[in-house]
Computed example of a mutant assay.
Amino acid sequence: MSELSHLRLMAGYNTWMNQKLYDAAATLPPGELAADRGAFFGSLLGTLNHLVAADTIWLRRFTAHPARFDALEAALALAQPGALNAVYSDDLATLTRHRRMLDGVISAFAAELADRDLEHVLHYASTKGVASQKRFGDVLLHFFNHQTHHRGQASTLLSQAGADLGVTDLLMLIENVADRDAPPGSS
Rank of each mutant, 00 (worst) to 15 (best):
Met1Ala: 12
Leu4Asp: 10
His6Phe: 11
Leu7Asp: 14
Arg8Leu: 11
Met10Tyr: 11
Tyr13Ile: 06
Tyr13Lys: 07
Asn14Asp: 14
Thr15Arg: 14
Thr15Leu: 14
Trp16Thr: 02
Trp16Ser: 03
Met17Leu: 14
Asn18Cys: 02
Gln19Glu: 15
Tyr22Ala: 10
Asp23Thr: 14
Ala25Asn: 01
Ala25Ile: 00
Ala34Phe: 00
Ala35Asp: 02
Asp36Leu: 00
Asp36Arg: 05
Arg37His: 05
Ala39Ile: 09
Phe40Ile: 12
Phe41Ala: 02
Ser43Ile: 07
His50Lys: 03
Leu51Thr: 04
Ala53Val: 04
Ala53Asn: 08
Ala54Met: 10
Asp55Ser: 15
Asp55Val: 05
Thr56Arg: 10
Ile57Ser: 06
Arg60Tyr: 05
Phe62Gln: 08
Thr63Ile: 11
Ala64Gln: 14
Ala67Asp: 00
Arg68Thr: 04
Asp70Ser: 05
Ala71Cys: 10
Ala74Gly: 10
Leu78Gly: 04
Leu84Gln: 15
Asn85Tyr: 06
Val87Trp: 14
Ser89Thr: 12
Asp90His: 14
Asp91His: 11
Asp91Gly: 04
Asp91Leu: 09
Ala93Gln: 11
Ala93Asn: 12
Thr94His: 12
Arg97Trp: 08
Arg100Lys: 13
Arg100Val: 08
Met101Ile: 00
Gly104Ser: 06
Gly104Gln: 01
Val105Ser: 02
Ala108Thr: 06
Ala114Ile: 00
Glu119Val: 13
His120Glu: 06
His120Met: 07
His120Gln: 06
Leu122Asn: 11
His123Cys: 07
His123Trp: 01
Tyr124Arg: 11
Ala125Thr: 12
Ser126Val: 00
Thr127Ile: 15
Lys128Asn: 09
Gly129Leu: 03
Gln133Trp: 09
Lys134Thr: 12
Arg135Pro: 13
Val139Pro: 00
Leu140Arg: 00
His142Trp: 08
Phe143Trp: 09
Asn145Val: 03
His146Leu: 11
His146Ile: 04
Gln147Val: 04
Thr148Tyr: 02
His149Gln: 07
Arg151Met: 03
Gln153Trp: 03
Ala154Val: 04
Ala154Gln: 08
Leu157Pro: 03
Leu158Asn: 10
Ser159Tyr: 05
Gln160Trp: 11
Gln160Ser: 09
Ala161Glu: 02
Ala161Tyr: 07
Gly162Leu: 03
Gly162Pro: 03
Asp164Phe: 11
Leu165Ile: 15
Val167Cys: 13
Thr168Glu: 06
Thr168Leu: 08
Asp169His: 12
Met172Gly: 08
Met172Tyr: 13
Leu173Trp: 11
Ile174Ser: 10
Glu175Thr: 09
Asn176Tyr: 02
Ala178Asp: 10
Asp181Leu: 15
Gly185Phe: 05
Ser186Cys: 02
Ser187Ala: 13
Ser187Ile: 06
